[in-house]
Design a binder for these strands. Structure first.
Lengths: 207, 207
DNA sequence: ATTATCTATAGATCTATAGATAATGC
DNA sequence: ATTATCTATAGATCTATAGATAATGC
Protein backbone atom coordinates (compact mmCIF):
# COMPACT_ATOMS: atom_id res chain seq x y z
CA UNK A 1 0.00 0.00 0.00
CA UNK A 2 0.92 3.65 0.17
CA UNK A 3 4.44 4.03 1.57
CA UNK A 4 4.21 7.74 2.31
CA UNK A 5 2.05 7.40 5.36
CA UNK A 6 3.13 5.74 8.54
CA UNK A 7 1.97 2.37 9.75
CA UNK A 8 -0.56 3.73 12.21
CA UNK A 9 -2.32 5.61 9.42
CA UNK A 10 -1.95 2.61 7.20
CA UNK A 11 -3.72 0.39 9.70
CA UNK A 12 -6.46 2.93 10.20
CA UNK A 13 -7.05 3.22 6.49
CA UNK A 14 -7.11 -0.52 5.87
CA UNK A 15 -9.39 -1.05 8.82
CA UNK A 16 -11.70 1.57 7.40
CA UNK A 17 -11.95 -0.15 4.06
CA UNK A 18 -12.59 -3.52 5.62
CA UNK A 19 -15.10 -2.31 8.19
CA UNK A 20 -17.01 -0.38 5.53
CA UNK A 21 -17.20 -3.46 3.40
CA UNK A 22 -18.01 -6.16 5.94
CA UNK A 23 -18.98 -4.47 9.18
CA UNK A 24 -17.43 -4.85 12.60
CA UNK A 25 -17.91 -8.51 13.31
CA UNK A 26 -16.82 -9.97 10.00
CA UNK A 27 -13.43 -8.28 10.10
CA UNK A 28 -10.67 -9.61 12.34
CA UNK A 29 -7.62 -7.73 13.52
CA UNK A 30 -5.68 -10.37 11.63
CA UNK A 31 -7.43 -9.33 8.42
CA UNK A 32 -6.56 -5.72 9.08
CA UNK A 33 -2.92 -6.50 9.80
CA UNK A 34 -2.64 -8.60 6.67
CA UNK A 35 -4.06 -5.84 4.52
CA UNK A 36 -1.90 -3.20 6.16
CA UNK A 37 1.18 -5.37 5.76
CA UNK A 38 2.12 -5.65 9.39
CA UNK A 39 1.81 -7.99 12.29
CA UNK A 40 -1.50 -8.52 14.05
CA UNK A 41 -0.08 -7.40 17.38
CA UNK A 42 0.68 -4.00 15.94
CA UNK A 43 -2.98 -3.28 15.40
CA UNK A 44 -3.46 -3.69 19.13
CA UNK A 45 -0.30 -1.74 19.93
CA UNK A 46 -1.73 1.34 18.23
CA UNK A 47 -5.41 0.98 18.98
CA UNK A 48 -5.50 -1.37 21.97
CA UNK A 49 -8.82 -2.96 21.07
CA UNK A 50 -10.69 -3.71 17.89
CA UNK A 51 -13.68 -1.87 19.32
CA UNK A 52 -11.56 1.26 19.80
CA UNK A 53 -10.34 1.19 16.26
CA UNK A 54 -13.81 0.63 14.94
CA UNK A 55 -15.34 3.43 16.97
CA UNK A 56 -12.87 5.98 15.68
CA UNK A 57 -13.83 5.10 12.14
CA UNK A 58 -17.53 4.77 12.78
CA UNK A 59 -17.84 8.05 14.57
CA UNK A 60 -16.09 9.87 11.76
CA UNK A 61 -18.38 8.29 9.16
CA UNK A 62 -21.48 9.05 11.12
CA UNK A 63 -20.49 12.67 11.62
CA UNK A 64 -19.77 12.92 7.92
CA UNK A 65 -23.14 11.42 7.13
CA UNK A 66 -24.98 13.97 9.24
CA UNK A 67 -22.79 16.99 8.59
CA UNK A 68 -24.85 18.60 5.85
CA UNK A 69 -27.99 18.46 7.92
CA UNK A 70 -26.30 19.79 11.04
CA UNK A 71 -25.13 23.03 9.51
CA UNK A 72 -27.23 26.02 8.61
CA UNK A 73 -27.43 27.49 5.13
CA UNK A 74 -27.63 31.24 5.72
CA UNK A 75 -28.11 32.22 2.10
CA UNK A 76 -31.25 34.22 1.39
CA UNK A 77 -32.74 31.66 -0.94
CA UNK A 78 -36.23 30.33 -0.30
CA UNK A 79 -36.64 27.47 2.15
CA UNK A 80 -37.53 24.88 -0.46
CA UNK A 81 -34.48 25.77 -2.57
CA UNK A 82 -32.17 25.44 0.38
CA UNK A 83 -33.77 22.12 1.25
CA UNK A 84 -33.25 20.84 -2.27
CA UNK A 85 -29.61 21.89 -2.21
CA UNK A 86 -29.03 20.17 1.10
CA UNK A 87 -30.54 17.01 -0.22
CA UNK A 88 -28.42 17.13 -3.35
CA UNK A 89 -25.27 17.82 -1.39
CA UNK A 90 -26.07 14.90 0.89
CA UNK A 91 -26.61 12.58 -2.03
CA UNK A 92 -23.33 13.72 -3.56
CA UNK A 93 -21.56 12.93 -0.33
CA UNK A 94 -22.99 9.43 -0.42
CA UNK A 95 -21.87 8.97 -4.01
CA UNK A 96 -18.36 9.57 -2.73
CA UNK A 97 -18.93 7.29 0.28
CA UNK A 98 -21.22 4.58 -0.93
CA UNK A 99 -20.77 2.22 1.95
CA UNK A 100 -21.60 4.68 4.70
CA UNK A 101 -25.36 4.05 4.73
CA UNK A 102 -24.93 0.34 5.16
CA UNK A 103 -22.32 0.73 7.84
CA UNK A 104 -24.51 3.07 9.81
CA UNK A 105 -27.58 0.89 9.56
CA UNK A 106 -25.67 -2.20 10.39
CA UNK A 107 -23.77 -1.04 13.43
CA UNK A 108 -26.38 1.29 14.80
CA UNK A 109 -28.84 -1.56 15.00
CA UNK A 110 -26.52 -4.36 16.04
CA UNK A 111 -24.70 -2.69 18.88
CA UNK A 112 -26.82 -1.18 21.58
CA UNK A 113 -23.93 0.46 23.40
CA UNK A 114 -22.65 2.24 20.36
CA UNK A 115 -26.16 3.30 19.49
CA UNK A 116 -26.98 4.74 22.88
CA UNK A 117 -23.74 6.61 23.12
CA UNK A 118 -23.94 8.13 19.66
CA UNK A 119 -27.61 8.91 19.53
CA UNK A 120 -27.60 10.86 22.77
CA UNK A 121 -24.65 13.00 21.76
CA UNK A 122 -26.07 13.73 18.34
CA UNK A 123 -29.44 14.60 19.74
CA UNK A 124 -27.97 17.03 22.22
CA UNK A 125 -25.54 18.63 19.80
CA UNK A 126 -28.12 19.40 17.17
CA UNK A 127 -31.21 20.49 19.01
CA UNK A 128 -30.72 24.09 17.90
CA UNK A 129 -30.52 23.42 14.21
CA UNK A 130 -33.41 20.98 14.48
CA UNK A 131 -35.61 23.63 16.08
CA UNK A 132 -34.63 26.20 13.52
CA UNK A 133 -35.48 23.83 10.71
CA UNK A 134 -38.70 22.88 12.44
CA UNK A 135 -39.91 26.47 12.77
CA UNK A 136 -38.98 27.32 9.20
CA UNK A 137 -40.84 24.30 7.90
CA UNK A 138 -43.97 24.94 9.90
CA UNK A 139 -43.88 28.54 8.73
CA UNK A 140 -43.84 27.43 5.09
CA UNK A 141 -46.70 25.07 5.74
CA UNK A 142 -48.71 27.85 7.33
CA UNK A 143 -48.09 29.99 4.25
CA UNK A 144 -49.44 27.16 2.12
CA UNK A 145 -46.17 26.60 0.26
CA UNK A 146 -45.72 23.08 1.51
CA UNK A 147 -48.07 20.20 2.24
CA UNK A 148 -48.54 19.69 5.99
CA UNK A 149 -45.95 17.26 7.33
CA UNK A 150 -44.14 16.82 10.62
CA UNK A 151 -40.48 17.76 10.74
CA UNK A 152 -39.43 14.31 11.83
CA UNK A 153 -41.37 12.67 9.02
CA UNK A 154 -39.81 14.95 6.45
CA UNK A 155 -36.31 14.27 7.70
CA UNK A 156 -36.98 10.56 7.69
CA UNK A 157 -38.32 10.79 4.14
CA UNK A 158 -35.27 12.64 2.94
CA UNK A 159 -32.78 10.31 4.55
CA UNK A 160 -34.76 7.36 3.30
CA UNK A 161 -34.82 8.56 -0.29
CA UNK A 162 -31.14 9.39 -0.20
CA UNK A 163 -29.82 6.17 1.25
CA UNK A 164 -31.98 3.53 -0.37
CA UNK A 165 -30.09 3.24 -3.64
CA UNK A 166 -26.82 2.67 -1.80
CA UNK A 167 -28.42 -0.17 0.11
CA UNK A 168 -29.89 -1.70 -3.02
CA UNK A 169 -26.87 -1.15 -5.23
CA UNK A 170 -25.15 -4.44 -4.37
CA UNK A 171 -28.36 -6.25 -5.25
CA UNK A 172 -28.68 -4.50 -8.60
CA UNK A 173 -25.02 -5.12 -9.28
CA UNK A 174 -25.42 -8.78 -8.66
CA UNK A 175 -28.28 -8.96 -11.16
CA UNK A 176 -26.91 -6.68 -13.88
CA UNK A 177 -23.22 -6.45 -14.52
CA UNK A 178 -22.79 -2.70 -14.49
CA UNK A 179 -19.49 -1.10 -15.31
CA UNK A 180 -18.35 2.02 -13.47
CA UNK A 181 -19.79 4.38 -16.02
CA UNK A 182 -23.19 2.75 -15.83
CA UNK A 183 -23.22 3.00 -12.07
CA UNK A 184 -22.28 6.66 -12.21
CA UNK A 185 -25.15 7.26 -14.62
CA UNK A 186 -27.57 5.22 -12.53
CA UNK A 187 -26.66 7.19 -9.41
CA UNK A 188 -27.03 10.48 -11.24
CA UNK A 189 -30.52 9.52 -12.35
CA UNK A 190 -31.44 8.20 -8.97
CA UNK A 191 -30.28 11.41 -7.34
CA UNK A 192 -32.60 13.33 -9.61
CA UNK A 193 -35.47 10.99 -8.85
CA UNK A 194 -34.92 11.04 -5.10
CA UNK A 195 -34.92 14.83 -4.99
CA UNK A 196 -37.87 15.04 -7.35
CA UNK A 197 -39.88 12.58 -5.29
CA UNK A 198 -39.40 14.62 -2.15
CA UNK A 199 -40.09 17.89 -3.90
CA UNK A 200 -43.23 16.57 -5.53
CA UNK A 201 -44.40 15.05 -2.30
CA UNK A 202 -44.15 18.47 -0.64
CA UNK A 203 -46.31 20.34 -3.14
CA UNK A 204 -49.46 21.57 -1.41
CA UNK A 205 -52.84 20.24 -2.50
CA UNK A 206 -54.26 21.90 -5.56
CA UNK A 207 -57.30 23.98 -4.75
CA UNK B 1 -40.45 -22.75 25.75
CA UNK B 2 -43.50 -24.27 24.12
CA UNK B 3 -43.68 -27.98 24.87
CA UNK B 4 -46.26 -28.80 22.22
CA UNK B 5 -43.90 -28.59 19.30
CA UNK B 6 -41.03 -30.93 18.74
CA UNK B 7 -37.41 -30.07 19.20
CA UNK B 8 -36.69 -29.58 15.53
CA UNK B 9 -39.39 -26.93 15.33
CA UNK B 10 -38.22 -25.50 18.61
CA UNK B 11 -34.70 -25.06 17.29
CA UNK B 12 -35.99 -23.50 14.09
CA UNK B 13 -38.11 -21.04 15.98
CA UNK B 14 -35.38 -20.03 18.40
CA UNK B 15 -32.91 -19.68 15.58
CA UNK B 16 -35.36 -17.43 13.80
CA UNK B 17 -35.71 -15.11 16.75
CA UNK B 18 -31.98 -14.89 17.27
CA UNK B 19 -31.10 -14.44 13.59
CA UNK B 20 -33.73 -11.74 13.21
CA UNK B 21 -32.33 -9.90 16.16
CA UNK B 22 -28.59 -10.18 15.59
CA UNK B 23 -28.02 -11.45 12.08
CA UNK B 24 -26.17 -14.52 10.93
CA UNK B 25 -22.71 -13.93 12.24
CA UNK B 26 -23.52 -12.75 15.73
CA UNK B 27 -25.50 -15.86 16.57
CA UNK B 28 -23.75 -19.13 17.35
CA UNK B 29 -25.24 -22.59 17.20
CA UNK B 30 -24.49 -22.70 20.90
CA UNK B 31 -26.73 -19.68 21.45
CA UNK B 32 -29.49 -21.37 19.50
CA UNK B 33 -29.18 -24.61 21.43
CA UNK B 34 -29.19 -22.78 24.73
CA UNK B 35 -32.34 -20.89 23.83
CA UNK B 36 -34.04 -24.02 22.49
CA UNK B 37 -33.09 -25.95 25.60
CA UNK B 38 -31.06 -28.65 23.95
CA UNK B 39 -27.52 -29.60 23.22
CA UNK B 40 -25.50 -27.75 20.59
CA UNK B 41 -24.89 -30.95 18.62
CA UNK B 42 -28.60 -31.37 18.09
CA UNK B 43 -28.76 -28.19 16.07
CA UNK B 44 -26.32 -29.76 13.65
CA UNK B 45 -28.09 -33.10 13.77
CA UNK B 46 -31.26 -31.53 12.39
CA UNK B 47 -29.82 -28.86 10.12
CA UNK B 48 -26.28 -30.03 9.46
CA UNK B 49 -24.82 -26.55 9.12
CA UNK B 50 -25.56 -23.14 10.55
CA UNK B 51 -25.71 -21.78 7.03
CA UNK B 52 -28.44 -24.31 6.14
CA UNK B 53 -30.52 -23.36 9.09
CA UNK B 54 -30.11 -19.69 8.37
CA UNK B 55 -30.99 -20.02 4.71
CA UNK B 56 -34.26 -21.75 5.46
CA UNK B 57 -35.27 -18.89 7.68
CA UNK B 58 -33.92 -16.15 5.47
CA UNK B 59 -35.58 -17.43 2.35
CA UNK B 60 -38.94 -17.61 4.08
CA UNK B 61 -38.59 -14.05 5.38
CA UNK B 62 -37.53 -12.71 2.04
CA UNK B 63 -40.43 -14.39 0.26
CA UNK B 64 -42.77 -13.00 2.87
CA UNK B 65 -41.30 -9.55 2.39
CA UNK B 66 -41.89 -9.64 -1.36
CA UNK B 67 -45.15 -11.57 -1.42
CA UNK B 68 -47.54 -8.65 -1.69
CA UNK B 69 -45.68 -7.19 -4.63
CA UNK B 70 -45.41 -10.50 -6.43
CA UNK B 71 -49.13 -11.15 -6.61
CA UNK B 72 -51.65 -9.44 -8.82
CA UNK B 73 -54.69 -7.60 -7.52
CA UNK B 74 -57.39 -8.37 -10.07
CA UNK B 75 -60.08 -6.15 -8.57
CA UNK B 76 -61.46 -3.52 -10.92
CA UNK B 77 -60.34 -0.59 -8.83
CA UNK B 78 -58.20 2.13 -10.40
CA UNK B 79 -54.45 1.58 -10.61
CA UNK B 80 -53.58 4.17 -8.01
CA UNK B 81 -56.04 2.71 -5.52
CA UNK B 82 -54.65 -0.78 -5.96
CA UNK B 83 -51.15 0.62 -5.53
CA UNK B 84 -52.11 2.35 -2.32
CA UNK B 85 -53.65 -0.85 -0.98
CA UNK B 86 -50.56 -2.87 -1.80
CA UNK B 87 -48.39 -0.38 -0.02
CA UNK B 88 -50.62 -0.41 3.03
CA UNK B 89 -50.73 -4.19 3.12
CA UNK B 90 -46.95 -4.29 2.84
CA UNK B 91 -46.54 -1.86 5.68
CA UNK B 92 -48.95 -3.89 7.79
CA UNK B 93 -46.90 -6.98 7.14
CA UNK B 94 -43.80 -5.18 8.34
CA UNK B 95 -45.59 -4.05 11.49
CA UNK B 96 -46.08 -7.73 12.24
CA UNK B 97 -42.48 -8.56 11.28
CA UNK B 98 -40.47 -5.55 12.30
CA UNK B 99 -37.07 -7.10 12.02
CA UNK B 100 -37.42 -8.35 8.47
CA UNK B 101 -36.16 -5.20 6.76
CA UNK B 102 -32.97 -5.15 8.77
CA UNK B 103 -32.35 -8.85 8.26
CA UNK B 104 -32.76 -8.52 4.53
CA UNK B 105 -30.51 -5.51 4.23
CA UNK B 106 -27.91 -7.00 6.46
CA UNK B 107 -27.59 -10.43 4.90
CA UNK B 108 -28.24 -9.44 1.34
CA UNK B 109 -25.32 -7.06 1.45
CA UNK B 110 -22.93 -9.06 3.58
CA UNK B 111 -23.11 -12.39 1.83
CA UNK B 112 -22.47 -12.39 -1.87
CA UNK B 113 -23.38 -16.03 -2.36
CA UNK B 114 -26.75 -15.72 -0.71
CA UNK B 115 -27.39 -12.54 -2.64
CA UNK B 116 -26.57 -13.97 -6.03
CA UNK B 117 -28.62 -17.07 -5.47
CA UNK B 118 -31.71 -15.26 -4.20
CA UNK B 119 -31.69 -12.31 -6.54
CA UNK B 120 -31.54 -14.44 -9.67
CA UNK B 121 -34.41 -16.64 -8.61
CA UNK B 122 -36.57 -13.70 -7.58
CA UNK B 123 -35.87 -11.85 -10.77
CA UNK B 124 -36.80 -14.83 -12.90
CA UNK B 125 -39.88 -15.76 -10.94
CA UNK B 126 -41.42 -12.32 -11.08
CA UNK B 127 -40.71 -11.00 -14.52
CA UNK B 128 -44.35 -11.38 -15.54
CA UNK B 129 -45.84 -9.41 -12.72
CA UNK B 130 -43.14 -6.79 -13.12
CA UNK B 131 -43.99 -6.32 -16.79
CA UNK B 132 -47.68 -6.13 -16.04
CA UNK B 133 -47.08 -3.48 -13.41
CA UNK B 134 -44.74 -1.66 -15.73
CA UNK B 135 -47.25 -1.44 -18.56
CA UNK B 136 -50.07 -0.39 -16.27
CA UNK B 137 -47.93 2.34 -14.79
CA UNK B 138 -46.75 3.70 -18.11
CA UNK B 139 -50.36 3.67 -19.30
CA UNK B 140 -51.41 5.83 -16.35
CA UNK B 141 -48.56 8.20 -17.01
CA UNK B 142 -49.58 8.51 -20.64
CA UNK B 143 -53.10 9.36 -19.53
CA UNK B 144 -51.69 12.11 -17.34
CA UNK B 145 -52.90 10.54 -14.11
CA UNK B 146 -49.42 10.07 -12.69
CA UNK B 147 -46.20 12.06 -12.84
CA UNK B 148 -43.67 10.46 -15.20
CA UNK B 149 -41.46 8.01 -13.31
CA UNK B 150 -39.68 4.79 -14.17
CA UNK B 151 -41.12 1.58 -12.78
CA UNK B 152 -37.91 0.69 -11.00
CA UNK B 153 -37.71 4.10 -9.36
CA UNK B 154 -41.27 3.87 -8.15
CA UNK B 155 -40.73 0.43 -6.68
CA UNK B 156 -37.57 1.60 -4.98
CA UNK B 157 -39.42 4.61 -3.59
CA UNK B 158 -42.18 2.46 -2.19
CA UNK B 159 -39.88 -0.06 -0.58
CA UNK B 160 -37.75 2.72 0.77
CA UNK B 161 -40.68 4.56 2.35
CA UNK B 162 -42.04 1.37 3.83
CA UNK B 163 -38.88 0.01 5.40
CA UNK B 164 -37.17 3.12 6.72
CA UNK B 165 -39.09 3.42 9.98
CA UNK B 166 -38.26 -0.18 10.88
CA UNK B 167 -34.60 0.56 10.37
CA UNK B 168 -34.74 3.75 12.41
CA UNK B 169 -36.98 2.39 15.14
CA UNK B 170 -34.17 1.07 17.35
CA UNK B 171 -32.53 4.48 17.17
CA UNK B 172 -35.71 6.27 18.16
CA UNK B 173 -36.30 3.77 20.92
CA UNK B 174 -32.88 4.36 22.33
CA UNK B 175 -33.53 8.11 22.45
CA UNK B 176 -37.12 8.12 23.67
CA UNK B 177 -38.39 5.43 25.94
CA UNK B 178 -41.53 4.42 24.09
CA UNK B 179 -43.92 1.91 25.51
CA UNK B 180 -45.71 -0.55 23.24
CA UNK B 181 -48.73 1.63 22.79
CA UNK B 182 -46.64 4.60 21.72
CA UNK B 183 -44.80 2.48 19.18
CA UNK B 184 -48.05 1.20 17.75
CA UNK B 185 -49.28 4.75 17.42
CA UNK B 186 -46.00 5.92 15.89
CA UNK B 187 -46.12 3.13 13.31
CA UNK B 188 -49.71 3.91 12.47
CA UNK B 189 -48.84 7.52 11.83
CA UNK B 190 -45.76 6.62 9.90
CA UNK B 191 -47.74 4.26 7.70
CA UNK B 192 -50.06 7.09 6.84
CA UNK B 193 -47.17 9.41 6.11
CA UNK B 194 -45.29 6.88 3.98
CA UNK B 195 -48.33 6.20 1.82
CA UNK B 196 -49.19 9.87 1.60
CA UNK B 197 -45.67 10.79 0.57
CA UNK B 198 -45.73 8.32 -2.29
CA UNK B 199 -49.23 9.30 -3.37
CA UNK B 200 -48.40 13.00 -3.28
CA UNK B 201 -45.16 12.42 -5.13
CA UNK B 202 -47.11 10.75 -7.94
CA UNK B 203 -49.57 13.57 -8.56
CA UNK B 204 -49.02 14.98 -12.02
CA UNK B 205 -47.83 18.57 -12.41
CA UNK B 206 -50.57 21.16 -12.16
CA UNK B 207 -51.26 22.80 -15.45
C1' DA C 1 -34.15 -51.03 14.56
C1' DT C 2 -34.57 -46.42 14.15
C1' DT C 3 -34.57 -41.90 15.70
C1' DA C 4 -33.45 -38.40 19.11
C1' DT C 5 -30.37 -36.67 22.24
C1' DC C 6 -26.05 -36.27 24.74
C1' DT C 7 -20.82 -36.06 25.83
C1' DA C 8 -16.51 -35.13 24.21
C1' DT C 9 -13.40 -33.31 21.24
C1' DA C 10 -10.70 -31.85 16.93
C1' DG C 11 -9.42 -28.14 14.54
C1' DA C 12 -9.95 -23.55 13.28
C1' DT C 13 -10.59 -19.31 14.42
C1' DC C 14 -10.00 -14.74 17.09
C1' DT C 15 -8.51 -10.99 20.59
C1' DA C 16 -5.33 -9.36 23.56
C1' DT C 17 -1.00 -9.33 25.89
C1' DA C 18 3.88 -10.46 27.40
C1' DG C 19 8.25 -10.14 26.23
C1' DA C 20 12.01 -9.96 22.64
C1' DT C 21 14.25 -7.33 19.06
C1' DA C 22 14.89 -3.65 15.74
C1' DA C 23 14.73 1.27 14.54
C1' DT C 24 14.96 6.04 15.83
C1' DG C 25 15.84 10.31 18.47
C1' DC C 26 18.63 12.67 21.45
C1' DA D 1 15.90 5.86 26.00
C1' DT D 2 11.99 5.63 23.52
C1' DT D 3 9.15 4.02 20.05
C1' DA D 4 7.94 0.62 16.54
C1' DT D 5 7.62 -3.90 15.25
C1' DC D 6 7.81 -8.86 15.80
C1' DT D 7 7.21 -13.80 17.79
C1' DA D 8 4.72 -16.59 20.65
C1' DT D 9 1.04 -17.80 23.24
C1' DA D 10 -3.01 -17.90 26.64
C1' DG D 11 -7.61 -18.26 26.82
C1' DA D 12 -11.94 -17.91 24.80
C1' DT D 13 -14.68 -18.72 21.39
C1' DC D 14 -17.11 -21.43 17.53
C1' DT D 15 -18.55 -25.18 14.03
C1' DA D 16 -18.91 -29.71 12.95
C1' DT D 17 -18.51 -34.52 13.78
C1' DA D 18 -17.72 -39.15 16.06
C1' DG D 19 -19.45 -42.16 19.01
C1' DA D 20 -22.26 -43.31 23.24
C1' DT D 21 -26.78 -43.62 25.29
C1' DA D 22 -31.68 -42.93 25.75
C1' DA D 23 -36.33 -42.97 23.74
C1' DT D 24 -39.59 -44.69 20.41
C1' DG D 25 -41.84 -47.61 16.91
C1' DC D 26 -42.72 -51.95 15.29
Amino acid sequence: MNKDINMEQQILQCAEELFLEKGFSLVSTTDIAKKAGCNQALVHYYFRTKENLFQQIFQEKFTKFLYIFTTFDDSDEPFITRLRKKMEAHFDLLIQNRQIPFMIINELILNENRRNKLVKSIYNNNLDIYRKFDSELQEEIKKGNIRPISTLDLLINIVSMNIIIFIILPVLESQFNFDNEEITELLKQRKHEAVETIMCSLRPEKK
